[in-house]
Write a protein that binds this DNA or RNA. Structure first.
Ligand code: ZN
Length: 286
DNA sequence: ACCAATGTTGACAG
DNA sequence: ACTGTCAACATTGG
């Protein structure tokens, strides 16, 4: 469930469900997920859900008096009202307008995090600007990219202090939209490309979020190229490639997202041929 | 039965 | 000190 759009969607439903609700009981006993003391959760009992914020992939629920419940969904975390007990990792009984409900944090893989803290929480403080909440500062991004001569543009935009909330899917989709190959060195991205990338990130986040807001009506794979390696590029019909980059499976179109510059410059010697990627390897347990 | 999965972090080698 | 590469985490669903 976890990139910026998914987390934003969770934030919205939490706000819908629990604004003004009173927390009757809070039980979180999974040591892998809960950071800090388990008993601290009892301190929240009796308090009221007041605010719902998101920064990147982090959520925080405010209970007043500088008490926040921070939540990171890891790879498979989600919040549900009622629903199945199967993947429940934390349970919150709430009362809103006399109605009692169970709010669950579910997380099969248990890579998520729950933490109680005040407004100063290091993982939250460490996040860069959130594209949806703060917008993207083109000059700042250009600077961040220009300094990274060795890393690929995809890896850099996925760093949470560069842009909070961009994950594998959003990176793949936006780079495709901006016609930028994910393996390009971050520092090689030119000004106009940064401008295009910023637009593309906004485009991808907006359409993913819109799709999520449709609820179950949404299709299985609403993405343009993520998860579609081996199928034709929606723009040019070239078969989409799949490769690993920075330990993450990546999809790209070799035609729309050239690795080597294709600028038709008859005066200059021909551009170097793009390196052909090694025959598909497989591995990764992410 | 096998493989891949929307994330993050820490170890290690160069 | 920096950089890149792996592995690990834990579990499910196709
Ligand atoms: Zn294409």
């Amino acid at each position: 469930m976890p990139e910026l759009p998914e987390v934003e969607s969770v934030r919205r439903k939490l706000s819908r469900w629990t604004t003004g609700a009173r927390l009757v009981s809070a039980v979180a006993s999974d040591r892998r997920i809960v950071r800090g003391s388990l008993s601290a959760f009892a301190k929240l009992e009796g308090r009221t859900f007041r605010s719902f914020e998101r920064r990147g992939k982090w959520l925080r629920i405010g209970f007043g008096e500088n008490q926040y419940l921070y939540s990171h969904l890891g790879m498979t975390g989600d919040w549900e009202l009622e629903g199945e007990e199967r993947f429940e990792r934390a349970r919150f009984e709430i009362v809103k307008k006399k109605k009692k409900n169970v709010l669950r944090y579910t997380d099969p893989r248990r890579w998520g995090v729950l933490a109680l803290a005040g407004e100063d929480f290091p993982p939250w403080a460490a996040l860069g600007p959130d594209p949806l909440h703060d917008g993207i500062d083109i000059d700042r991004l250009e600077k961040k990219l220009s300094v990274r001569a060795k890393k690929s543009v995809k890896e850099v935009i996925m760093e949470q202090k560069v842009l909070a909330g961009i994950g594998n899917i959003q990176a793949i989709e936006s780079l495709w939209k901006a016609h930028i190959h994910p393996k390009r060195k971050a520092a090689s991205i030119e000004h106009e490309e940064v401008v295009a990338l910023v637009k593309a990130i906004e485009w991808s986040i907006a359409r993913t979020l819109a799709d999520l807001e449709l609820g179950d009506a949404g299709k299985d794979n609403p993405f343009k190229i993520y998860g579609n390696a081996g199928r034709p590029c929606p723009r040019c019909k070239t078969i989409l490639q799949r490769f690993e980059l920075g330990g993450r499976t990546t999809t790209a179109c070799a035609t729309c997202q050239p690795l080597a510059k294709v600028k038709p410059s008859r005066t200059k010697p021909s551009a170097k041929r793009a390196k052909t990627s090694a025959p598909q390897r497989r591995r990764s347990r992410r």
